[in-house]
Simulated assay, not measured.
Amino acid sequence: MSTASFTSGQPATRTDADLIAGNKRFYDALWADAHLCPPERFNTWPLVAELAARTTRRLEVAPGLRPRLPLTDTQFVDLSRPALAELRRHGARVANAMIGALPFQDASFDFVCAFDILEHVVDDEGALGELTRVAAPGASLLLSVPLHPEAWTAFDDFVGHYRRYEPETIRALLARHGFTIERSAVYGMQPKSSKLLDLGQWFLTHQRTRAMWWYNRVFMPLGMRFQKPLDFKPGFDPAPGVDEVLLVCRKAGT
């Protein structure tokens, strides 16, 4: 793991194997009882449609059953077999793999998407290195990450996060791998109420099946219904208190 990408104050005792196993348990259970949400229903769709129209060489890493890229002409990669089975059933092209070992040749894609992924892996340098390797020169990269280690909560730990990023840390990480941040927006659907988060975690811990049912059939649809349009700003200069950001990046080259 790169020490440059880790900030103190966050749990660092979990190994990569611990994170993989924990994430797989959590998301396999989540996706096993979920329906696929089409990408057109997310507030990312106007941006995605704009970028996707330029190429059919597209990759989305670990979408679960919430893909943001079009199902047609996009390669999807995920660790969760229930998610892959459902994506395949809807006609998507899928592969069972991890972000740190993508089974594709160099420069295979012009549009790469990785929402809420880097914070889940120990070796974020290696993970971003793989995204860089498979991205062609000039490729677009959509990346979302949580910000500010001091904002760490039990929710981060519960859903399998390894870190939150300081803005300068994620900016430097991307720069080391040849990516420039062109624009950014406040992103994410995490509830602001700590009491609501505590209640949700209690149900997920003690009544997981019931909690997953409510999340997939009630809270997720409500959250999607009340999504706000993304407000993109040039570059990346997040205001204080921003919990998560979506970054639109460009790989160096022509």
Rank of each mutant, 00 (worst) to 15 (best):
G178T: 06
A151E: 13
V159T: 03
A154V: 15
F226Y: 00
V121E: 04
E119L: 11
T209M: 15
R176H: 12
D123M: 07
I181H: 09
D157F: 10
A127E: 07
A185E: 09
V134K: 02
D116A: 09
D157E: 14
A127Q: 07
S193W: 00
F158H: 08
D106S: 12
A114K: 11
E119A: 10
Q207P: 14
V145H: 07
G160V: 05
E182P: 02
K192M: 15
R164Q: 06
A139K: 04
F179S: 01
T209L: 14
W214P: 14
S193P: 03
H148K: 14
R163F: 06
E168T: 13
F219T: 15
Y165T: 01
R164P: 05
P149T: 01
D156A: 09
D157I: 14
A135R: 00
A135Y: 06
W202N: 09
G126H: 06
L199Y: 10
A139R: 10
D157L: 11
L173K: 02
Q201I: 13
L141N: 02
D123P: 10
M224D: 14
S140A: 13
V122A: 12
M212K: 12
E168G: 11
T153E: 03
F203M: 06
W213R: 06
A136L: 04
F226M: 12
L197Y: 01
G129T: 07
A107Q: 10
R183N: 09
R176V: 07
W152C: 00
D106R: 12
G178N: 03
V122Q: 09
G223T: 10
M212A: 14
Q201K: 13
A172Y: 00
A154P: 15
L197W: 05
T169H: 04
M224G: 10
K228P: 05
A185Q: 00
L173Y: 10
P167Y: 02
V218L: 09
R225N: 13
G138F: 08
I181T: 08
F111Y: 08
E119C: 00
L222N: 10
M220F: 05
F115E: 08
R164S: 00
E166Q: 15
L204F: 07
P221R: 05
D123H: 00
R208I: 01
D124K: 10
G138R: 12
R163E: 02
L147P: 12
P146K: 01
E166I: 13
H148V: 12
P149N: 04
V134C: 04
K192L: 14
K192F: 13
L147C: 15
A135L: 03
G223Q: 07
L173V: 10
F179Y: 04
F155V: 08
S184K: 03
S140Y: 10
M212W: 15
Q190G: 13
V218W: 04
L141Y: 03
G200L: 06
C113F: 11
S140N: 11
G129S: 09
